[in-house]
């Protein structure tokens, strides 16, 4: 296990290095000069000296390997340089929004898992009955429904229902309230985007719970448990559910990493100033240094999450012995 952990950590390095190269190359593929594009936009005239200064400031005239080294080294020392659009340090811009996005992601995970495990279990036990069909439709709909549309519908629902019950329309506030300042206000603000992203999450996890449980229920030891007269409830809770949680853990981990992608759209709908919105703005503003830093951050979270999932997997299942 110890050896395996070290090996996995070492294997992460080439993937991350590759990701860094890929992003770096992609950002250099952008046609035209970045400074010119930024300052002149669609054909306006700009002092050539200003463009040259801008290039020098951003280090765009340095050789590629120097630029690449700056980019990678920036990640090691947590100093990613200035944003090309605002001029503020990128590290600061990210730190400002990290908490908000992480909080939504965590609440969405909780919402997803709390819905998924009971639903998936019922669906597996009542396989091929109308309950099963309803749950399956519900979960397939969750994968089909765009989270930004669900967000719009949630806002619409909130507006209409608050208007109806309190006589005054209410919308979740845009200004972020940190959890230690006012937990209730914080939850009231973030629960809605968390539900919008969490529905898809729960859908994926429900399907996984169902199929994992169905597989376990066919095992010999379940038949043995039934044969010795154990009541069905105990069979499910004690014997089946525990052993079917492994793939569910995996899918929860993988989906957590994908949540980062989901947040990009959800934050836009709820107008929340998180990492996703920052990313969209950076792309729209042609702020390449910021785009580059953010995409790398997502890759980092993704790879590290996968690593943690593998470790948890090994801990949960004593049969898995990595060499």
């Amino acid at each position: 296990m110890y050896k395996y952990t070290i090996k996995r950590i070492l294997l992460m390095i080439p993937t991350l290095a590759g990701a860094a190269v890929l992003i770096f190359a992609l950002m250099r593929l952008i046609p035209g000069d970045i400074c010119e594009l930024r300052m002149a936009g669609e054909g306006a005239w700009v002092d050539p000296q200003a463009i040259k200064d801008c290039q020098n400031n951003l280090g765009l005239n340095d050789p590629f390997f120097v630029q690449f080294w700056d980019f990678v080294w920036g990640y090691v020392v947590f100093d990613l340089g200035p944003s090309m659009w605002t001029g503020k340090p990128i590290t600061e811009e990210i730190a400002l929004r990290f908490q908000l996005s992480m909080e939504i992601a965590i609440i969405a995970t909780i919402v997803g898992v709390v819905i998924a495990i009971p639903l998936g279990t019922i669906s597996a036990i009542k396989q091929n009955t109308w309950i099963d069909y309803v749950v399956r439709s519900f979960s397939i709909a969750g994968i089909a429904m765009p989270s930004f549309w669900l967000g719009i519908i949630i806002i619409l629902g909130l507006l209409i229902s608050t208007q109806h019950f309190f006589g005054e329309p209410w919308m979740p506030p845009i200004e972020y309230t940190p959890i230690w300042v006012d937990p209730a206000q914080n939850l009231l603000q973030l629960i809605w985007p968390a539900i919008a992203t969490g529905y898809r999450y729960s859908a994926v996890a429900t399907r996984m719970t169902r199929s994992a449980l169905l597989e376990v229920l066919r095992e010999d030891y379940i038949r043995t448990a039934r044969a010795k007269g154990l009541i069905e409830k105990l069979i499910i809770n004690r014997h089946a559910l525990k052993n079917s949680m492994l793939p569910v853990v995996t899918i929860v981990g993988i989906e957590f990493a994908f949540l980062m992608g989901g947040l990009v759209v959800t934050e836009q709908v709820f107008n929340l100033n998180g990492l996703g919105k920052l990313f969209v703005e950076s792309v729209l503003n042609h702020d390449f240094s910021l785009t580059q830093a953010l995409v790398m951050l997502v890759a980092l979270i993704f790879v590290v999450t996968n690593f943690i999932v593998d470790l948890i997997y090994a801990m949960l299942d004593p049969r898995i012995r990595y060499s």
Binding site: P14, T15, L16, G18, A19, V21, L22, I23, L26, M27, L29, I30, P31, A257, F258, M260, G261, G262, V264, V265, F279, V280, V283, H286, T291, V295, V298, A299, F302, V303
Partner: peptide, 22 residues
């Protein structure tokens, strides 16, 4: 496979957005 791993290290929409930005 390592090359493919690198592409898989990004959620679909993030990579798609990065490509669209170019």
């Amino acid at each position: 496979q390592r090359f493919m791993d690198v592409f898989m290290a990004f959620p679909l929409i993030i990579l798609a957005l990065a490509i669209v930005s170019i």
